[in-house]
């Protein structure tokens, strides 16, 4: 680990100014991913600018009925908030499905969104990785790619290929619930849809997000959404707990008395470089009967352009049926709940 300076500015604007001025400076919040990366040699900042206490640690009601989550809110507090549990159950579930009790006490809302891929080759300095070392190649393409992408990845050319996935559970639920992110930069604060925060690897896999260096997430806004109360998060992983998703589904569903789906929100985790908003699946669901056939057709619609990693050392082809199965399980559960409430 290289030495670094440590600073704790007086306010968020000061933190932004400090980091913006130094291309090698980095923000420190909960530290659960950054300190990990310092030890692995993946990050070597000149200065760590501690933003703990500089962004809000409160969850406040928005005028139109939504919630504003301070970027400093710890994952555990976020999940335990009674408004979140009642109005956005998918989000509470997603938060609780992530990491461990200790990590949820540490990790912040902002930091969770900005965590980097858990690709084993990205974390291993002895292997090629275009995300870590541009142009060196993607070791996962022909490697152990169990946790890798099926959607939106870059398979070629070799010098920019990247099939990494975003590891957050929380972000998948937030994407499904159409959250906005508030970002503070040198020129003031702006709000962007969460779907515009993360980016596909394209021809530059080194960049995970659209943020400029020095921009700081200050809050996440959750819009009011009646359908969100009928939402769920289904995470499929290789252990019963404390493991990253192979595939996850955040979904919300509205079904009318006749059993027809009137509204739907779906996002997928573990399948792409971003938390994946499944708009094709949503379109396929709305207006269709709430049946297993519909759910599977919706998954097929979303996976039309899917391209699994076909690796001799363990690829992601299994994720195609797994996405379908997980989506069906999640939506079936929601529809059953919905039917029970209607009764």
């Amino acid at each position: 680990m290289k030495p670094f300076a440590y600073e704790r500015p007086h306010d968020a604007a000061g933190a932004v100014a400090t980091v913006t001025a130094d291309p090698d400076a980095a923000f420190l919040a909960g530290g659960t991913n950054l300190v990990d990366h310092l030890k692995l040699g993946l990050a070597a900042p000149s200065t760590l600018v501690d933003v703990t206490g500089l962004t809000s640690t409160e969850i406040t009601d928005l005028p139109e009925g939504g919630l504003r989550i301070g970027a400093g809110v710890r994952n555990a507090d976020f999940a335990a908030d009674e408004r979140v549990r009642a109005r956005y159950p998918a989000l509470a579930h997603a938060l609780l499905a992530g990491a461990s009790g200790q990590l949820r006490n540490m990790a912040t809302t902002g930091g969770n969104l900005l965590q980097r891929t858990r690709c084993v080759y990205f974390q291993d300095l002895t292997t090629p990785c275009n995300k870590r070392e541009p142009g060196s190649g993607c070791s996962a393409l022909d490697g152990w790619a169990r946790h890798h992408a099926v959607l939106g990845a870059t398979h070629e050319p070799a010098d920019v290929a990247c099939v990494a996935t975003h590891p957050s559970d929380m972000a998948v639920a937030l994407v499904a619930l159409e959250a906005q992110v508030r970002v503070l930069g040198r020129d003031g604060e702006r709000a962007i849809p969460l779907t515009d925060l993360h980016r596909l690897p394209g021809d530059d896999p080194t960049r995970d997000t659209t943020l400029a260096h020095g921009e700081l997430i200050t809050a996440v806004d959750l819009p009011a959404s009646p359908i969100a109360a009928h939402s769920t998060y289904r995470k499929v992983r290789d252990r019963a707990s404390y493991a990253f998703a192979l595939v996850s589904v955040a979904a919300a569903l509205a079904v009318d008395d006749g059993g027809t789906i009137t509204d739907a929100r779906v996002a997928l985790g573990g399948v792409a470089h971003v938390p994946w908003r499944a708009t094709a699946a949503e379109s396929a669901l709305v207006g269709a009967p709430a049946t297993d056939d519909t759910y599977r057709a919706a998954a097929r619609a979303e996976l039309v352009d899917a391209r699994p990693v076909e690796s001799p050392r363990g690829g992601t082809a299994f994720k195609l049926p797994l996405v379908t199965a997980t989506l069906a399980a999640a939506l079936r559960g929601l529809a059953e709940n919905s039917a029970q409430e209607a009764r």
Binding site: Y6, V35, D50, Q102, N105
Partner: peptide, 21 residues
């Protein structure tokens, strides 16, 4: 989890917490 301590009352992983922070 072997490094777990109660930090300001909450269970925390001391291995991922920088002392200066």
């Amino acid at each position: 989890g072997a490094c777990t301590v109660l930090l300001d009352g909450r269970r925390t992983l001391s291995c991922l917490s920088l002392a200066v922070a």
